[in-house]
Simulated assay, not measured.
Amino acid sequence: MIRSFLQSIEDADEALKELFDPIFESLFQGEMNHHLGYENDDKDYKQRQNRRDGYSQKTDHTTKGDITIVTPRDRDGSFEAQMISKR
């Protein structure tokens, strides 16, 4: 069954790379929640002025090849992911 889906080692590598994206996205969201002090869907009043401000794309070089990661941004630009740092 798996054999018909994965025809080569390269296919297996591509499948693994596709698994990275949702894992990284969840980890980045957790870091942003911690950074801002509230959950993504929290509609309550917030004392801080800093808020979420969209996403940026980043290409990371791995042993399995390049992967594109979507990272969250905040308005004042103070968020820096700890899991995968810049540059």
Results as ranks from 00 to 15, higher is better:
residue 37 G to A: 05
residue 27 L to N: 01
residue 55 Y to E: 09
residue 69 I to Q: 02
residue 35 H to F: 06
residue 82 Q to M: 12
residue 34 H to V: 10
residue 84 I to S: 06
residue 49 Q to S: 15
residue 55 Y to L: 08
residue 46 K to A: 07
residue 57 Q to M: 11
residue 75 R to L: 08
residue 75 R to Y: 04
residue 79 F to T: 02
residue 24 F to A: 14
residue 22 P to N: 10
residue 34 H to Y: 07
residue 38 Y to Q: 12
residue 17 K to E: 04
residue 38 Y to V: 11
residue 75 R to K: 14
residue 45 Y to H: 03
residue 61 H to Q: 15
residue 65 G to L: 09
residue 76 D to S: 14
residue 41 D to L: 11
residue 18 E to W: 08
residue 48 R to P: 00
residue 15 A to P: 05
residue 83 M to I: 15
residue 66 D to V: 06
residue 7 Q to D: 07
residue 80 E to V: 05
residue 28 F to A: 00
residue 56 S to W: 04
residue 19 L to C: 13
residue 76 D to M: 01
residue 59 T to I: 15
residue 41 D to G: 11
residue 59 T to Y: 08
residue 73 R to G: 00
residue 48 R to A: 13
residue 55 Y to I: 01
residue 45 Y to D: 10
residue 12 A to W: 02
residue 6 L to I: 09
residue 49 Q to W: 06
residue 79 F to G: 00
residue 3 R to S: 13
residue 25 E to F: 02
residue 8 S to F: 08
residue 29 Q to R: 14
residue 20 F to K: 03
residue 68 T to M: 04
residue 18 E to T: 07
residue 44 D to A: 15
residue 66 D to Q: 11
residue 26 S to Q: 13
residue 65 G to M: 11
residue 19 L to E: 05
residue 27 L to E: 01
residue 5 F to C: 07
residue 21 D to M: 10
residue 39 E to Y: 10
residue 45 Y to V: 01
residue 13 D to T: 13
residue 47 Q to P: 03
residue 18 E to K: 14
residue 2 I to M: 04
residue 40 N to W: 09
residue 32 M to G: 02
residue 77 G to T: 06
residue 65 G to K: 12
residue 22 P to L: 06
residue 39 E to R: 14
residue 70 V to S: 15
residue 23 I to E: 12
residue 78 S to D: 13
residue 22 P to R: 08
residue 75 R to V: 04
residue 83 M to P: 00
residue 79 F to S: 00
residue 16 L to E: 02
residue 30 G to N: 04
residue 23 I to Y: 13
residue 5 F to I: 14
residue 60 D to S: 12
residue 38 Y to P: 08
residue 20 F to I: 15
residue 4 S to V: 06
residue 40 N to Y: 03
residue 28 F to G: 00
residue 65 G to R: 11
residue 52 R to A: 04
residue 42 D to S: 12
residue 84 I to H: 02
residue 47 Q to C: 05
residue 38 Y to L: 11
residue 61 H to C: 00
residue 23 I to M: 15
residue 15 A to R: 03
residue 4 S to Y: 01
residue 12 A to Y: 06
residue 15 A to Y: 13
residue 7 Q to C: 07
residue 68 T to K: 07
residue 64 K to H: 04
residue 56 S to C: 07
